[in-house]
Every structure is written in structure tokens, then in C-alpha cells.
């Protein structure tokens, strides 16, 4: 029996409940469509190719970090160090890939390294901090809030010291090698006359890999089980501490990838790069239904959360709403979206 037939077989009260459930269960999609329709009516330019590509590329830039943090949230944790890790990795990538002969080059004698090498360094750096986060959480039974509150400070301090090295002297790092910027922000495909930057494809690949890890590997299933009930996982023979450490390591790798993309996307990197990215990422996760209660979350939800959040940001600007007012509206939207979404999980009695 398909859902339409089932609906027809119901009596009036059941139908009313079914309609209500449908609205609640699909509230995010409905909200997404409603937002687009409203903005489009007020600003007919909104659905132009340029604007769509803009939203897609902003979402793509934020997707890996959100996917990383989602893992931590599924474990009933969080990660406050994400933004700082992104910033640190971005600065390191930038300094290793400054064009030869650029004045103020941090390492004047160093030719730009091959891209794959820098990419691996980015991943390794992210993974390192991630492992530290995960290890401290698992080994010392600390809440990740505390662990990552500490590591983000440590990462920030290390980054400030790093930026004093050589000729750089704490200034912003720019003058990136064109091979790097082309690889990230160049384009092989356009919608209309608007080029789609390459990093969108990279974000898609990363998302596919994460979907696979979450749904098709024993590590992914263990992650959900540990988030849902760590004691049950333990007595069933799951290595809980290793699972936690690996989840944070994977998150770190995601931040590394975000940093690698972000450095070239921004072009000029400072110690402020990446600041507060984790807050947007957490907001996107909870909007997308990744529950702080643990054990619940879908890749699909994270994607929708990220897109919805970007859509709101871009939409509010398109509506030329006062920037101070934008903060208030963003806050309200996150609050309302989460409150509506939460209704899915409430046990009514």
C-alpha cells in the first residue's frame, strides 16, 4: 500500500494527524521552498544563475566542516576548535604555496610545494588536532566542550607564533601561487555565464565519502551506536574509546580539507581566518536534524542545514536588510527551525 492509498483509508481525525505529521516531518523542506519563493517574489533577480552558484559555492565551502562537526554532535559532543583549526591549516597552506618572488614571502627561499604534498600536510595537521581532541575526550572522560575549548586556544596561540616566522611578521598571508588558486577557485563548468568554482566538486566528493563512511562502514555504525548508548556499545564489544578518537580525527581531517580550500578561496589569510566557523557549522547541523541528544543525524540533513543557513544569509542581504537586523533574524530562524524540527523526536503522551 503506498502512502496515498493509506491516506485515503483513514478517517477524518487520522487524516488531520497525518497532515500534521507530514508538515512537521518535512518542515525543513517546506521552509526552504517558502524562503525561496518569498525572496524571489520580493527580489526577482534572486534565482539568477549567478545568485544560485553563489549560494551553492558558499554552501560547498562550509560543507566539510559541518560534516566533521556532525560526527562530534552525534557522539553527544561538540567541537569548538573547528574554526581555529580551519584558520591554522589555511594559513599553513597559504605560506607553503606563496608565489615565488612575492614580497614579504614567509619562506623566501621556498618554491611553492606540489599541491598534493600541501593537501596531505593540511589533512595531517587537522587529523593531529582531531586525534588530540578525541584522545582527551575518550581517555580522560572529558566533555568535548571542555577539551575543544582548550585546544582551540592552543591552536590559536600556535598559529599566532607561526605567523611571526620569517619575513611575515604577523601580517596576512597573500600572494598565493596561481596553480593553487586555479585548482580551488578555477572552473571547468559554467551555468550560463557564471563559472562554478572547482571546490564545489571537491565538496561533493568529500560528502559522498562521508555518506559512505557513515552508512556503509562498521566505523560509521559504531559511531551512531556509541552516540546512542555508549554502555551498550561497550558490552557488545565495540572499542568505544577508539571510536570516539576516530570520530574526532575524521572531523579534524574535514577541517583540514576546509582549511585547504578556504586559504585559496579567501586569498589573503590571517589569524582571524575561520573564526566562528564552528558556530555556523553547529547551527547548520542542528537545523538539519543532527540531534544533541546523540545517535541521530543524516548526511542529507547536514547538507540541507548548510544550504538553508547560506540561503538565509544570502537572502537577507539580497533583501537589503540592515546588517544589525540580520543577526537578530538569523538567531530567530535557527531557534524556530530547531524547535519545529525537535517536534519530530518528541514522544507525545
Amino acid at each position: 500500500m503506498n502512502s496515498l492509498q493509506r491516506y485515503k483509508a483513514m478517517d477524518a481525525i487520522q487524516r488531520k494527524n497525518a497532515r500534521k505529521d507530514f508538515l512537521i516531518n518535512n518542515s525543513l523542506y517546506i521552509f526552504l521552498i517558502a524562503a525561496v519563493v518569498v525572496i524571489q517574489c520580493l527580489r526577482p533577480n534572486f534565482l539568477s544563475p549567478a545568485s544560485i552558484v553563489n549560494i551553492i559555492s558558499l554552501s560547498a565551502a562550509n560543507l566539510p566542516i559541518a560534516l566533521g562537526i556532525a560526527g562530534a554532535i552525534i557522539l553527544t559532543g561538540t567541537d569548538l576548535s573547528a574554526g581555529r583549526i580551519v584558520g591554522a591549516v589555511a594559513c599553513v597552506c597559504a605560506t607553503l604555496l606563496q608565489m615565488s618572488g612575492y614580497p614579504n614571502k614567509m619562506f623566501p627561499g621556498l618554491d611553492p610545494l606540489p599541491l598534493p604534498v600541501v593537501f596531505l600536510i593540511a589533512i595531517a595537521l587537522g587529523a593531529l588536532v582531531g586525534v588530540i581532541n578525541g584522545f582527551c575526550t575518550a581517555k580522560f572522560n572529558l566533555h568535548p566542550f571542555i577539551v575543544t575549548l582548550s585546544t582551540q586556544l592552543i591552536v590559536y596561540g600556535a598559529l599566532l607564533m607561526y605567523l611571526m616566522i620569517g619575513n611575515n611578521n604577523g601580517q596576512s598571508v597573500s600572494g598565493l601561487d596561481s596553480s593553487y588558486t586555479n585548482f580551488i577557485t578555477g572552473s571547468i563548468l559554467s551555468i550560463g555565464s557564471t563559472p562554478i568554482p572547482n571546490f564545489v566538486w571537491y565538496a561533493i566528493v568529500v560528502t559522498l565519502i562521508m555518506w559512505f563512511i557513515w552508512n556503509k562502514t562498521s566505523f560509521g555504525k559504531n559511531m551512531f551506536a556509541v552516540g546512542s548508548n555508549p554502555e551498550a556499545a561497550n558490552v557488545s564489544g565495540v572499542n568505544v574509546k577508539r571510536t570516539i578518537t576516530l570520530v574526532f580525527m575524521l572531523a579534524g581531517i574535514m577541517y583540514g580539507i576546509t582549511g585547504f580550500i578556504e586559504a585559496a578561496r579567501i586569498g589573503s589569510n590571517t589569524a582571524a581566518t575561520g573564526v566562528n566557523y564552528e558556530l555556523d557549522a553547529i547551527a547548520a547541523c542542528v537545523i538539519g536534524g543532527v540531534s544533541f541528544a546523540g545517535g541521530i543525524g543524516k548526511i542529507r540533513g547536514v547538507i540541507i542545514g548548510v544550504v538553508l543557513l547560506r540561503l538565509i544569509f544570502v537572502g537577507l542581504t539580497a533583501l537589503s536588510i540592515d546588517s544589525n537586523m540580520q543577526y537578530i533574524i538569523k538567531g530567530l530562524i535557527i531557534l524556530i527551525a530547531c524547535a519545529v524540527d525537535m517536534r519530530k523526536y518528541l514522544v507525545r503522551r
Partner: peptide, 18 residues
Amino acid sequence: LNQALKRSVMDNMWLGRY
């Protein structure tokens, strides 16, 4: 009862030895 309640029956059955 030590179970991951948000997961499916079979996920729980094979937890730790998928």
C-alpha cells in the same frame, strides 16, 4: 537493557561484529 535505542533491531544485533 543495554541497547542503542535510536538504531534498528539488526544494527543492535550485530553491534560490535558487523
